[in-house]
């Protein structure tokens, strides 16, 4: 095709409905699994679990298929500048929605630190609440001892978390070097910097696992350790999940670079993934500052 048509209206496609079914199977499996595990049925095993994993497999299948179609269209040169701009805007707004999702959990963290924990210790006009409910409770952050009496130790900022900060910031730089190389059509530096980024992402995740094991086993820090543990694990957990996704996507980009899918002008997928990668990096900086450091 010499020139892409201005408007590309795709064929009807089976992938969205497969995706909807996959989401349904996953959600149904997850709900069944979760609510059974709290009931007596747990003893008899749960059929929710296999359904959940089948759903996840279906989602993966859908993504392969759907992205496969998009990649084929792109490689055949069907994507006009207009569509490229649509994809860009779409990705940017998607990242904004992700920012709001993390915002909620940061909101919960700040609410607990600034309001609910001090209030439970009698701040403001809550003296009577404090005296009547948990008179022994003291306001500390990290919350070493919850009003209910669960205790934990705090995670230190300047060990592995600091190393991880350096790793993630570095990876943001290397992915930018890869992007520069791509724009200049320099294949070897592109592959080198991108591979290095993937490796840094994987290292970060490994260190996070090490840190989680340390938290569970030695600090007594878990989801159940009060609001400190809840916010710590939900924030770092969702961040870790996003880094995992990002690393996988970077890996896919690496393979696509090997296959020579991108040109110095047309490489939206690469840019989208690098935006995503910068986004998880920035989230981590906030995490490091407010969850670990202060």
């Amino acid at each position: 095709m010499s020139e892409a048509p201005r408007y590309h209206v795709p064929h009807s496609s089976p992938w969205p409905i497969i995706g909807s079914c996959a989401l349904f199977v996953t959600a149904f499996g997850a709900a069944t699994f979760i609510h059974q595990s709290t009931e007596k049925v747990a003893a008899e095993g749960s059929f929710g679990e296999p359904i959940f994993f089948a759903g996840l497999a279906l989602i993966a299948f859908m993504m392969f298929g759907w992205f496969g179609v998009v990649i084929r269209e792109s490689v055949q040169g069907m994507n006009s500048g207009l569509l490229d701009r649509s994809y860009r805007m779409g990705m940017a707004w998607f990242i904004i929605s992700e920012v709001m999702f993390f915002g909620v959990f940061f909101g919960a963290l700040f609410y607990a630190r600034i309001l609910s924990v001090p209030w439970l210790a009698g701040a403001g006009n809550n003296l009577e609440t404090h005296v009547l409910l948990w008179p022994d409770f003291a306001d500390t952050w990290p919350l070493f001892r919850t009003p209910g009496g669960t205790t934990t130790e705090a995670m230190q900022a300047w060990g592995l978390p600091f190393v991880n900060t350096i790793i993630l910031v570095t990876s943001s730089v290397t992915v930018t070097f890869a992007h520069w190389a791509l724009r200049k059509n320099q294949r070897v530096p592109l592959l080198f910097w991108l591979a290095l980024t993937v490796a840094l992402g994987a290292t970060f995740l490994t260190l996070q696992v090490v840190e989680y094991i340390h938290a569970f086993n030695e600090l007594g820090l878990s989801l159940g350790a009060g609001i400190y543990g809840s916010t710590f694990f939900m924030l770092t957990g969702f961040h870790g999940a996003h880094v995992t996704m990002g690393t996988i996507m970077l890996g896919v980009m690496l393979m696509r670079c090997f296959s020579g899918h991108f040109t110095s002008e047309h490489h939206f997928a690469f840019e989208a993934v690098s935006w995503y990668w910068h986004f998880v990096d920035v989230i981590w900086l906030f995490l490091f500052t407010f969850v670990y450091w202060f």
Partner: peptide, 16 residues
Amino acid sequence: DRHFGTSFFSAAGGGD
């Protein structure tokens, strides 16, 4: 909060 022991909405764990 329902299934994994977090205390976002439970005062006993420091939430609200």
